[in-house]
Amino acid sequence: MAEYYPRYKEFLKGDTSIAFLAGGLAGAVSRTVVSPFERVKILLQVQSSTHSYNRGLFAAVKQVYVEEGVPGLFRGNGLNCVRIFPYSAVQFVVYESCKKHIFNVDGSVGKDQLLNWQRLVSGALCGGLSVLATYPLDLVRTRLSIQTANLARLERSRARNIARPPGVRELLVKTYRNEGGIRGLYRGVWPTSIGVVPYVALNFAVYEQLKEFIPQGMDPSTANFYKLTIGAVSGGVAQTITYPFDLLRRRFQVLAMGGHELGFRYSGVTDALITIGKTEGFKGYYKGLTANLFKVVPSTAVSWVVYEVVCDMMRAW
């Protein structure tokens, strides 16, 4: 067994392995930290104007807690971590690969760095590939968040117990069988992609640009504080610019659950944008933005710091 240890260690210290493991851990840790805000954000995005999550972010968090308890605040987080590990890992692996194999840039401190347009292209590629790799799990997680909220409301209004919430496997199978197979599992992937791709591109580009301003030679704790700060800035800027497409992503994911009950029905992305503007006004494009920023800003900050720390630990091992 001992003879395989050096090979195993060498494999883990490879650039691809480091990026994959560090990226996956960064995604899982960061999303768990902000899971309550993620759940409320989805509920705010897909509700109609007559539903009851309109009293503010923290009131909505409290309402979910009252209706479903602590498990309700983390509903879908287990599935989200299963999804986000490869989602985040693929992003960092593709980004690092773009640096070395497409643009031939080392990217180490004190060496050549990507130009901003190269960062945007690399970020767009890793965003698109990560969506394709994990989209069915993202769709099911969104539906799980909505269905458990609806079940809690029905149970309260009828004053009796109703069927248990559907499980992940059950939702995957049901979606595949009833909504056209693979096509059903990728329902909403287009509006998702046009939102995620520019978001990831901006996130990587802004973070990498700001990282160049961090003074060299400072102690690790101070450097990590700087990275936490610029990670928050990069996530906030990227999400605010691309948020309307994130809202479209969630709405298209739940259309097949009963568009009339949820208060909207669209024939396509263009129709959705026009309809939201007419029926909900400009604010409609940013419904749930506050909840999303409470999720994205700390999540992105934690993700970048965890990624950098794990990478440093694995390289030093």
Rank of each mutant, 00 (worst) to 15 (best):
N224L: 02
D138E: 15
N77D: 10
A22V: 07
R251Q: 03
I194W: 04
E208V: 06
E68L: 09
R164F: 07
L137P: 02
L12P: 04
M1G: 13
Q147C: 13
F213P: 03
G128K: 00
S30Y: 04
K211A: 14
S130N: 03
H101P: 11
R75W: 14
L43M: 05
C126E: 10
F225A: 03
C81N: 11
V94L: 09
W317R: 14
P165S: 10
F252L: 11
V33H: 00
K111M: 15
Q209K: 13
M257L: 15
L151P: 02
M314H: 12
T192C: 01
L144E: 01
A19Y: 01
M1A: 12
H101G: 11
S145R: 03
F294L: 15
A28P: 00
S48Y: 08
S221G: 07
A159T: 12
K211P: 12
G56R: 05
I102G: 01
L12C: 09
V233I: 10
G281M: 04
R141M: 15
V34Y: 01
Y135W: 08
T229C: 09
H51P: 04
Y226Q: 05
A28F: 01
V61N: 01
V34C: 09
S157V: 05
F204M: 05
M314A: 12
I162Y: 08
V302E: 08
G128H: 02
I42G: 00
R177H: 09
G180D: 06
R315S: 13
R183D: 10
Q209R: 13
V197Q: 00
V254A: 01
R7Y: 12
G127S: 02
Q239F: 08
D138L: 14
V310D: 04
K278C: 06
T175C: 11
P71F: 13
L57M: 08
V105A: 14
E67W: 04
F85G: 00
N161G: 14
L79I: 13
I230T: 03
E308S: 04
V93Y: 01
L171W: 06
V237T: 08
N54Y: 03
L114K: 14
Q91P: 02
